[in-house]
Write a protein that binds this DNA or RNA. Structure first.
Lengths: 151, 151
DNA sequence: CTAAAGCCTCACACCGACGTTAGAGTCAAG
DNA sequence: CTTGACTCTAACGTCGGTGTGAGGCTTTAG
């Protein structure tokens, strides 16, 4: 498919798609006239790219990850040493991401209780409904460590 | 404490701290000579700010959410109507945050799978060219709609 | 008192991830 | 063949988050 269709099907703008290519995250083939031709699998790929970028993952990591994710393990280095280094790098990102998530979760829980407070009057033993939100629990650890400082 | 100390204790640069203030995320008092004076609690606050920003949360969310996250319910309006609108706003941000977290989790799962692939077996007795199945399952929900597409 | 640190306010610079516009080629339909 | 939708490249603009430097007070140590 051409870029317009991919754009429509992914929700990413044409500009974004070209940008991703520029960054080496997409590699469409070209027609003789220069038009980009994408594969079905690129629909998925774009979704993943956007997901990871929106997670503020370093674009380098996004690139590496995507290569392994979508190009199969063909790109995994043979040399055990290389593999180890690669794995360590990715593991580092993974740990950072996990930290971030935990910290965000605590923020979300806190926010949820505040919403509950605002909505259902101040904290009380009685419970004012609380239908929609499955999230609004009342047990919130008062933002103790909850800290996710980064590098 | 003054800005230098806060910077040292949080790892955020002085520039960043002033920027956060500019964005309304920090509101230090001033000495007569204009020096910013921060509270102990600002150490925590900065940590949280950095976490949310590093997760690429829309700054609007960070801003409003933070005010209530960290100032507790001090700022909750009396008027029921105001409270209702506020609750709705916060609920929206809460939903966004939840979405974001889900997106991050899916990215993390993806990354975890890849790390496992790189680290673990890989070219075992099996073989390349095996049917797509391959190494990538391992308790990871195949990141189906791993899409965190957002506005 | 004086020098060194620390802080202040601009204000310009930069990078990533886009948006937007301009000028030109391509393609399917009428 | 012409029109209009689609695409191309190239380049400039924008916005958030920071770095960096200039020029000038304030505080602290000796």
């Amino acid at each position: 498919m051409r870029i317009g269709e991919l754009s429509a099907r992914t929700g990413a703008s044409v500009r974004m798609l070209r940008y991703y290519e520029e960054q080496g995250l997409l590699t469409p083939v070209r027609t003789e006239s220069g038009y980009r031709i994408y594969q079905e699998s690129d629909v998925d790929r774009v979704a993943r790219i956007r997901c990871m970028l929106s997670a503020a993952l370093p674009s380098g990591v996004v690139g590496q990850a995507l290569r392994f994710l979508l190009d199969g393990r063909a790109a995994i280095p043979d040399e055990p040493a290389d593999r180890a280094r690669l794995a360590d790098t990715l593991q580092g990102e993974l740990d950072l991401l996990t930290e971030k998530i935990e910290s965000l979760r605590s923020s979300r829980d806190l926010l949820a209780t505040i919403v509950a407070d605002v909505r259902g009057d101040v904290v009380g033993p009685g419970h004012p409904g609380d239908p929609g939100g499955g999230v609004a629990r009342r047990s919130v650890r008062k933002a103790g460590p909850a800290v996710g400082l980064a590098r």
